[in-house]
Amino acid sequence: MKLKQLESFLGDLQQFSNPKVELEQYPTGPHIASRMLYTAENSFGDVSNKVVADFGCGCGTLGVAAALLGAEHVIGLDIDPQSLEIASLNAEDLELDMNFVHCDVKNLGWRGQIVDTVVMNPPFGTRKKGADMDFLAVALKVASQAVYSLHKSSTRDHVRKAALRNFNASSAEVLCELRYDVQQLYKFHKKKEVDIAVDLWRFVPQKDKLGGIIADESLR
């Protein structure tokens, strides 16, 4: 599938009808989402024929993009049931067979490392400090191949240090800097549209020496 095609499919998806500020629900725009998954597939081969998890999937944009690019099994996680309902309608509209789990990403129980790739647009942690780092810590435990994530460019050094030092990533690379246009969703937004500089990261989790299966204990 061509990038333009992917972007246009994603542009047709239904988005949050009543975004919840406490969960920092901002839709992942079709421009960013298509580039993120297109790069993951075409530069690194991390999508097609893989098991892909979308952490904090919201309306499912990244997961849908993964499924459109040929992921074999896509699982979207979110704490908000209304978002999951929209996400599953979006999947259904495109006749994609996706799975969803209603959970708090931070404390879902996983058995082993079945997930190959995690894709996510985590809450940036502006409302709840450290929310983005919580997501990243779990993603690097669950994924066996790669984690793709968006973080504010202003936090670049912090993200790199945390990933390599605290979460045992074997590599952390900024693939590109993107502009995230946050439209005026919430009342506290003063301007109509704000551009935030965000980094598209690719992290590689540490390969486990025991053949990729990690004990349940380490996921707690």
Binding site: N99, V101, G112, I114, V115
Partner: peptide, 10 residues
């Protein structure tokens, strides 16, 4: 059932 195979009670 693939999803079932990867979830556990936490």
């Amino acid at each position: 059932l693939l999803t079932h195979n990867m979830l556990s009670s936490n």
